[in-house]
Write a protein that binds this DNA or RNA. Structure first.
Lengths: 177, 177
DNA sequence: GACACCATGTAAAAGGTTACATGATTCG
DNA sequence: CGAATCATGTAACCTTTTACATGGTGTC
C-alpha cells in the first residue's frame, strides 16, 4: 500500500501533524501522484506509529500531534523508493481514461473533446510556468519539493497538449485515428 | 465510479466478452489510465446490464457472453466523456509518487534514482516509438485506440525523461532542488 | 458571539484485490 | 493425455470514501 509510503516520505522531508499532511495532499501530490483525505491519513499514522516507523515528537495546542520518522521508518522508505520501476504499479487516472475512450465518440464530439483538452492543458502549462518562475529560491521546508513538482507538472501538461494537437491533426473525417 | 465508464467506452468501440475486456485492461489502458482485474469486471458488467446500459448480444462456447452497449449506455457514456475536466478527478500513480518523494532521500540516492528513471523512460520511449512506427494502418477493431494510446505513451515517457534530466541538472550537492 | 479555520477522530458503505473454485477447448 | 489458454464466477479481506461527530482558537 502506497499511502503509508507517501506519509513516510512527507514526514522524512519535514515532521508534521496529520492536519498538515492532509493539506499537503490537496496540493501537487494529490493532483499528480496520490490522493488521500484526513479520514485515511489519521488511522494510517496510528498504524505507522504502532509499527515503529514514525513517532509523535510532541503534542501542541488543540490536541495537535507532530509526527517524525524513526530510523526504521527511514530505512523502510529508502528501500521502497530505490526499488526498480515496476510495471504493475498502481495507476488510476480518470482524466487519462477519458482521453483513451475518445474513440467511442462520434468524430464531431472527438474534435470537441480534443479541442477542450488542448486549450485546457495549454492554459494550465502557461499558468504553472508563471507560478514556478515567481517562486523564491530557498523558501519553506518543502521548497525543493514544490519546484520538482512544478517542473513535473509543466512537462505533463505540455505532453498532453502536444498529444491533443497531434490527435486533432490525425483523426480523419470518419473518426479513425 | 470510473470502471463502469471504462467498460462502457470499450464496449462502445467494439462489443466484447468479460474475458476480452480483462485482456484489454492488461494493455495500454491499464498501463496509463485505469487498472481492473476480471474479479471486478465480471460483477460490474452484471450491474451495467441490470441498469440497462449494456446487454448480452449472444452467448458463445464455454459460457462466453458478448456484451454490447445499449442506446441508453451510449448516452450515459457520452455525457460522462464530454464533462469539462474536473480538478478533483481520481489520480493514483505509484511511480509518480516515488518521484515526488525524491526529496526524502540523501543526495547520492537522489542521483541514483533520477539516473535510473532517465534511463528507463528514455529506453521505453524509444521502444514505444518503434512499436508505433511498425503498426499497420487499418488493423483490428481497436486500431485507432492503440495508435492514440501509443502516441500518448511516447509523449508521457519523453516528458518524464526530460524532467529527470532537468532534476539531475538542478539538484545541488546538498540535495536541494 | 458568529464565522472561519485548526485539529482530531469513528463508523458504515462502497470499491478493489487476493485467493479460491470450476470447467471447456485447443494444440502438441 | 497433459499443458496452456479460454471463460466465468464467489468470498474474504483490505482500502478508500462519505457521513457523522466533537471541540479549540483567532478575528471581526
Amino acid at each position: 500500500m502506497s499511502l503509508s509510503h507517501a506519509l513516510l516520505g512527507l514526514l522524512a522531508v519535514a515532521p508534521a501533524s496529520g492536519y498538515e499532511l492532509t493539506k499537503e495532499f490537496e496540493q501537487e501530490i494529490g493532483r499528480y501522484a496520490w490522493q488521500a483525505g484526513h479520514t485515511s491519513i489519521y488511522p494510517e499514522l496510528g498504524k505507522l506509529a504502532a509499527r515503529g516507523l514514525v513517532h509523535v515528537t510532541h503534542e501542541g495546542a488543540r490536541g495537535a500531534k507532530t509526527y517524525d520518522v524513526t530510523d526504521e521508518g527511514r530505512e523502510e522508505l529508502r528501500s521502497w523508493l530505490l526499488q526498480p520501476p515496476n510495471p504493475t504499479a498502481t495507476v488510476r487516472n480518470e482524466q487519462v481514461l477519458r482521453m483513451f475512450l475518445l474513440s467511442a465518440l462520434e468524430p464531431a464530439d472527438q474534435r470537441l473533446m480534443l479541442t477542450r483538452i488542448a486549450e485546457h492543458t495549454g492554459r494550465a502549462a502557461t499558468e504553472l510556468r508563471a507560478v514556478v518562475a515567481t517562486e523564491t529560491p530557498g523558501g519553506g521546508p518543502r521548497a525543493g519539493f514544490g519546484r520538482l513538482a512544478g517542473e513535473f507538472g509543466i512537462r505533463q501538461y505540455e505532453a498532453v497538449h502536444e498529444w491533443a494537437l497531434w490527435a486533432l491533426d490525425h483523426i480523419a473525417e470518419d473518426g479513425q485515428a
